[in-house]
């Protein structure tokens, strides 16, 4: 038994997420990861944007900042840059991070600022009623794609790697221990650390795509996620329709706030 109660704001429970929504599973994995790392709650800040995922801060007993749609990363950048001693965790969704906040997403990754970013990817705009997002798979239905989505989806993790993030992983809520491990690694990493977490949205996504039962979506994650080691052994045909999970990038790069500290020392030394 893990005692979550010391980390959560019980007054706000039961939470607002729908039955079978995976967001609560991610929150629990995050709490366990934080607990294992000796992070002070007083010095931890959680920043989010708008959407289902972004309601996470209301439930965590740390400093929490629920901002505007797409802007979690700039707010978090301000917090971290002004006060680098704070541990800053960003919680965002596929629409929040890669549509309205897409510009901040690539630039925060490029800057490699020491933020831990959990991107809850449920393939849909849940809170606004199931509109398609930049990660909705081609052919899937959404309230704004009633005849099926004709657009190709973003590779969100790949985008962060290309932009310069030092740590990028993909996890899912079925394989929940792996998810916790990825989050812990991201928290430990100095630099922009992204964990994209595949999470079911039975209400807005599943209902329109023959997976209204949360169990169906969990089974989909079980049957279609492939760990990186195994992925390497698959043929292109075998990879079709599957999603690679695990650590996708882990490199050492200059971190923004550390570089700025050096700049201050250089200027003050002159």
């Amino acid at each position: 038994m893990f005692n979550y109660l010391k980390f959560i704001r019980t007054r706000n429970f039961p939470h607002i997420w729908c039955p079978g929504c995976g967001d609560g599973i991610i929150l629990k994995a995050l709490i366990r990861a934080i607990d294992g790392l000796d992070i002070s709650r007083d010095e931890a800040v959680m920043v989010s944007g708008i959407g289902c995922s972004s309601r996470t801060p209301g439930y965590v007993d740390i400093n929490t900042l629920h901002t505007t749609h797409g802007r979690a990363l700039p707010f978090a950048t301000g917090v971290k840059h002004a006060s680098p001693d704070l541990n800053v965790i960003v919680v965002t969704g596929d629409g929040d991070a890669t549509a309205i906040g897409g510009n901040h997403y690539i630039h925060a990754a490029r800057r490699n600022i020491n933020l831990t970013v959990l991107l809850y990817n449920n393939y849909i705009y849940g809170m606004t009623g199931g509109q398609c997002s930049p990660t909705t798979p081609r052919g899937d239905r959404a309230s704004t794609a009633p005849y099926g989505n004709i657009e190709p989806p973003f590779n969100t993790a790949g985008l962060a790697i290309s932009a310069g993030a030092s740590f990028v992983a993909r996890a899912d809520v079925y394989n929940v221990k792996r998810c916790e491990k990825m989050i812990r690694q991201a928290l430990e990493k100095d630099g922009f650390s992204l964990v994209e977490i595949l999470t079911p949205c039975p209400t807005a996504y599943g209902r329109r795509n023959r997976m209204a039962n949360p169990v169906k979506l969990m089974e989909w994650l079980r049957d279609n996620t492939v760990p990186v080691q195994k992925w390497e052994k698959l043929s292109p045909e075998e990879r079709e329709g599957k999603v690679r999970v695990g650590v996708l990038a882990d490199t050492e790069k200059p971190e923004f706030t550390a570089e700025y500290r050096k700049l201050i020392e250089r200027v003050q030394g002159e």
């Binding site: 038994m1 893990f2 979550y4 959560i8 429970f13 039961p14 939470h15 997420w17 079978g20 929504c21 995976g22 967001d23 609560g24 599973i25 629990k28 994995a29 809520v173 079925y174 929940v176 221990k177 969990m218």
Partner: peptide, 16 residues
């Protein structure tokens, strides 16, 4: 512990 780990609602505890 899988039921506790995967419960999205913080509603299950498994005490060994």
């Amino acid at each position: 512990m899988l039921c506790e780990l995967r419960c999205p609602d913080f509603a299950i505890t498994v005490e060994k």
